[in-house]
Design a protein around this nucleic acid. Structure first.
Length: 423
RNA sequence: GGAAGCGUGGCAGAGCGGUUGAAUGCACCGGUCUUGAAAACCGGCGUGGGGCAACCCAUCGUGAGUUCGAAUCUCACCGCUUCCGCCA
């Protein structure tokens, strides 16, 4: 959520900013609603003030033992007018809130302006792309052939876009989780956190999955309105909803491994083969809560933390800055990390690291006490995948494959897996 | 599942339906005192919104209701605690 002041005092500039994203702000509608709101609000407040003073005087008169009946009839008339105004005002505020809840964040000045993913900016590449002297297989061939990856079983148990992993591959995935958590907690200063995998609507609103992305969530049932988390960002960030954090507690750095559940509503034909796009996948998430002035430095660091995992695993990758047309709804700036996938002869997203500035914090009322002003002020929130575990598994299988279909286990993982090679 | 209780400011904790936005304590900020600190004393101190401002409005878990007037009464919901039962 943007600061309401943007809509009240700088409507035109805000609309211009948002246009970069391809978002059309309903300027005239907002202007009209805000004008109406302003009139109704001050009228309502005047009526309330009058009611308050009159009621107060009734109390005083009563205390003096006077007859209050005439005073009371005088206030009676106020009631109806007041109630009517209050209802109108509430309706307008609801409309405004509905509009504002669907307005995306304004992007940082360093974000390239562009219409779609073709205009994202590559920042750098790391690692040497492996050269194979034999026809490369994709992770499906590598996994299914030896019955360590089974999509038919998952389809039987549940449906499309799930997987069953067995033996060394199941173990390798667990090893990856362990390795990532160990690295982030021991080397990058994050606190390991265990969280619920179901989140309520307030939490989903706080991290901007609602109201715009209702269709992407798996809800348990209508009464409860709990959803399976689409990312650990939701529970981790919402820990600080309605919290005022003491200045000396910042920055807060949390990491968690969780499964993630996504309907993938808008991607029916996409990545139907293999583990790239699943309804359920494992992820290790990084979340930081920081002082506003520190958030861009924190964003660089957090992205480096994710990159470190790729480097330790010796997986070739590149970093790109998402352009204004491709960046996520709530983000002011996002780096995507893309890992090399030999079977696709291209880089594929494996991590997305975003600075939300105060966008989520405003929705959540996540604040810190600024010692300079002594007042509670909104924090900045950041998060990034560190990394998407399923895709990391895919990347390892494909990059480390041998001619005979075996897979070398990356050196840093060997102590976790207990073997050097998956035969 | 059954029974009882509780949700008030950063925390603890008062609060006859009427000058209560809310006592008191702690914490915090400023000052006096002190070589310095502590203690003591004095003053300040919730949040959100509107207004240039004086000031006004809202807010005591959430939402409805009763009333001229609700933190205080009624109902529903949410959350928490305790006891019993059940399961592990």
């Amino acid at each position: 959520m943007l600061d309401p002041k943007y809509f009240r005092e700088e409507l035109e500039q805000t609309a211009t900013q948002l246009k970069k994203r391809g978002f059309v702000l309903e300027v005239e509608k907002i202007r009209a609603l805000e004008a109406e709101r302003k009139i109704l609000q001050s009228q309502t407040q005047d009526l309330q003030a009058e009611r308050n003073t009159r009621s107060k005087s009734i109390g005083q008169a009563k205390a003096r033992g006077e007859d209050v009946a005439p005073l009371m009839t005088a206030v009676n008339d106020l009631g109806e007018k007041l109630k009517e105004n209050e209802l109108k005002l509430a309706a307008i505020q609801e409309q405004l809130h509905a509009i504002y809840s669907c307005v995306p964040n304004i992007t940082h000045e360093s974000v390239p302006v562009g219409k779609d993913e073709t205009e994202n900016r590559e920042e750098h590449r790391w690692g040497k792309i492996p050269e194979f002297t034999f026809p490369v297989k994709d992770h499906v061939d590598l996994g299914v052939t030896k019955d360590r990856m089974n999509f038919d079983l998952a389809a039987k148990i549940t449906g499309a876009r799930f997987v069953v992993l067995k033996a060394e591959l199941a173990r390798l995935q667990r090893a990856l989780i362990q390795f990532m958590l160990d690295t982030h907690t021991q080397e990058h200063g994050y606190t390991e956190t265990y969280v619920p995998y179901l989140a309520n609507r307030d939490s989903l609103f706080g991290t901007t999955q609602l109201p715009k992305f209702e269709e992407d969530q798996f809800f348990t049932n209508a009464e409860q309105g709990y959803a399976l988390i689409p990312t650990a960002e939701v529970p981790l960030t919402n820990i600080f909803r309605d919290v005022i954090i003491e200045a000396d507690q910042l920055p807060i750095k949390l990491t968690a491994h969780t499964p993630c559940f996504r309907k993938e509503a808008g991607s029916y034909g996409k990545d139907t083969r293999g583990m790239i796009r699943q309804h359920q996948f494992e992820k290790v998430e990084l979340v930081q809560i920081v002082r506003p002035e520190d958030s861009y430095q924190a964003h660089e660091k957090l992205t480096r933390h994710a990159e470190t995992i790729l480097e330790k695993l010796e997986l070739p990758y590149r970093r790109i800055t998402l352009c204004t047309g491709d960046i996520g709804f709530g983000s002011a700036k996002t780096y995507d990390l893309e890992v090399w996938l030999p079977s696709q002869n291209t880089y594929r997203e494996i991590s997305s690291c975003s600075n939300f500035e105060a966008f989520q914090a405003r929705r959540m009322q996540a604040r810190w006490r600024n010692p300079v002003t002594g007042k509670p002020e909104l924090v900045h929130t950041l998060n990034g995948s560190g990394l998407a575990v399923g895709r990391t598994l895919v990347a390892i299988m494909e990059n480390y494959q041998q001619e005979d279909g075996s897979i070398i286990v990356p050196t840093v993982l060997q102590k976790y897996v207990g073997i050097e090679k998956i035969a």
